[in-house]
Design a protein around this nucleic acid. Sequence first.
DNA 1: GGCCGACCGTCAGGATCTCGTAAGAGTTGG
DNA 2: CCAACTCTTACGAGATCCTGACGGTCGGCC
Lengths: 226, 226
Amino acid sequence: MPNVLVVDDDHTVREVVVSYLRAGGHEVLEAGDGESALATMRDARADLVVLDLMLPGIDGLEVARRLRETSDVPIIMLTALGEETDRVVGLKLGADDYVTKPFSPRELVLRVDSVLRRAGRADEPDASVVTDGDLVVDAARHVATLRGERLPLTVREFDLLRYLVAHPGVAWSREQLLREVWGWSFGDQSTVTVHVRRLREKVEVDPTRPRRLVTVWGVGYRWEAA
Amino acid sequence: MPNVLVVDDDHTVREVVVSYLRAGGHEVLEAGDGESALATMRDARADLVVLDLMLPGIDGLEVARRLRETSDVPIIMLTALGEETDRVVGLKLGADDYVTKPFSPRELVLRVDSVLRRAGRADEPDASVVTDGDLVVDAARHVATLRGERLPLTVREFDLLRYLVAHPGVAWSREQLLREVWGWSFGDQSTVTVHVRRLREKVEVDPTRPRRLVTVWGVGYRWEAA
DNA sequence: GGCCGACCGTCAGGATCTCGTAAGAGTTGG
DNA sequence: CCAACTCTTACGAGATCCTGACGGTCGGCC
């Protein structure tokens, strides 16, 4: 779910870092120089930037400075050994962490997770585990339990449930749910209707009288916190 | 007192590294080539291996591969400058860190400490022996037993089983398993499918109706704790 | 060296499950 | 009572998974 932008001119380094981050469950964007890094941030927005100090054209420090003009996005600096002074400067510019080359990709992933966790508090609820009373939805394990029993949910049902429970009390239109859960910008809204029904069948005590996944007439659906 | 095994064919390099590590409070073992490195590990067991890539006879990559067959011992690779491809390969083989020559001995000691710290912290899900009811998976001895009987597992099957049992309840995608168990960053995902099938043949009571190594539709596989 | 078996990765066919869609019945609000 | 909206059911297409088979590779053994 969280987007990470990796900026490094070395293709090999990028490849390794990107694959490790993907394995850690991150969406990853790439940029080979400062220009495209800034462009990517304008267009796509990342939740964190891994930024090499040494870049062709605009260097890493300048990229960091410009990013800071418009955004509070966390930055992790990649510095070569012995760039002690640059390291200090980088931190002064507001980098949230730094890693010296050569580094272990696994360590980098740990730092990314750590920084995101720190920064994540202010962001929207994107926790790995969301709960509502006796209901627990664990995204990492891909397990949802109700009163301790595992719910046999399909992927779509799981994603839908997770989204709704993560935002209790909010009424969503079918169109919004299609966009947020399905990732579609168009589509038949009855798709949502049917999936809500199937989900009720598994989540509600009495599916004909929904208590938690309720209909908001003329609007859509809402998750009522227990 | 952690044991560190230093493998390098250059006597001078070894001498320097060893003395620095001893100064840093480590017990140190030495080996001048791959053969004796593997022999040392069989007899003495080190908690970490500092491994030169270029070795006479069996080279460093091969040594790392063989070590990984029976052990999760952390490995720090020593690479000459410009061995970019080897570096990537080394990391894929599961090296925990790498240091490029020429390096500062002090830097190496810092990295040894760092890796040992990391390895020590993560020892819970990475214990040498993982169990689940009547199933015991012993990584150190490379033996898995079910109801007291030894399972005739191949290397791949063993690694897969071990990884799954070490993380019960977690749903893994084939891609994640390829990365974590196979160490690949790409590859045919049907490889995982087939190995899961073969593993079921040996682990499940009724392989056609898996109870422990279950498939999570649209996601991948999960180990259900007994 | 040459044979052999164990193991591995790949592939294709068939079985199974999920998802989106449509269509009719039911319900709500005006 | 009507129109708009929602619920329910069913079904076929497509995605996903299982299974068996095949060729290649590696190490051990003759």
